[in-house]
């Protein structure tokens, strides 16, 4: 076997060990308490959000600040307690429909008016949870949510559709979800661009 083949076999093990979406899936299956870390970059009219997961144990009190926020989660406004777990990283804990604690976490960067990157505040991160998200529930239903809007896109996703458009806050949102979404139960990567879009006819209208 050639050196290159040995090297590739070795590092293929590393490459295949980390499946971003798969980790989220496994974690959701095992534990209803989510511990999802996301990094979000806010741009003028577009952003991309990729979710990765940490399997680190959750400590209930890490000595950080603790305040309450109202945030959009799964199409509903939820009161959440925020804890700063470490520099510029925050965890939000809210009650789900069954009264169980659910924790989501995140950090992020945004660009100030001078083009310089700065860490997002807890308030800004809480606001991003109201941004576009796609999630599959335990019954296999796939929902696209934006603040209080919630669209059932199960049949469209199962039919292989990946492009959707909806109107919210007076703007058209063109959402493309990862075309591997069907293979990934429970998590998606997506891009959300605010219109207009020259290829609008390619997108399935949701409202």
């Amino acid at each position: 076997m050639m050196n290159k083949e040995k090297y590739k076999r070795t590092f293929d093990t590393l490459a295949s060990s980390e499946r971003f979406s798969l980790e989220v899936t496994e974690m959701k299956k095992e534990n209803k308490t989510k511990h999802v870390y996301s990094r979000i970059a806010a741009a003028a009219a577009a952003f991309v959000l990729v979710i990765s997961a940490s399997t680190a144990a959750y400590a209930s009190d890490l000595g950080g600040i603790r305040t309450m926020f109202t945030m959009w989660i799964n199409g509903e406004q939820q009161n959440a307690t925020v804890t700063s777990s470490r520099d510029h990283e925050y965890e939000f804990t809210y009650k789900d429909a069954d009264g169980k604690d659910v924790t989501v976490g995140g950090d992020g960067v945004t660009t100030d008016e001078n083009g310089n990157e700065r860490p997002m505040t807890a308030s800004e991160i809480a606001e991003t949870f109201g941004d576009t998200a796609v999630d599959r529930d335990d019954n296999g239903k796939v929902y696209l949510t934006y603040k209080n809007l919630k669209f059932d896109i199960t049949s469209a996703v199962n039919a292989g559709k990946t492009k959707f458009v909806f109107t919210a806050d007076g703007k058209e949102h063109y959402v493309t979800i990862d075309d591997t979404a069907n293979e990934s139960i429970g998590s998606y990567s997506l891009s959300d661009c605010v219109g207009p879009n020259e290829d609008a006819s390619d997108y399935e209208a949701l409202n």
Binding site: A43, A46, V48, S52
Partner: peptide, 29 residues
Amino acid sequence: HLFVAAFNVCKDAEDAKDVVQDTFIQYHT
């Protein structure tokens, strides 16, 4: 591929994942 390359530098999986995300965000913006 980017994850493995980043891991070679960071030697930490979570940091390497952050690198991958940051890279695609930079491309997108």
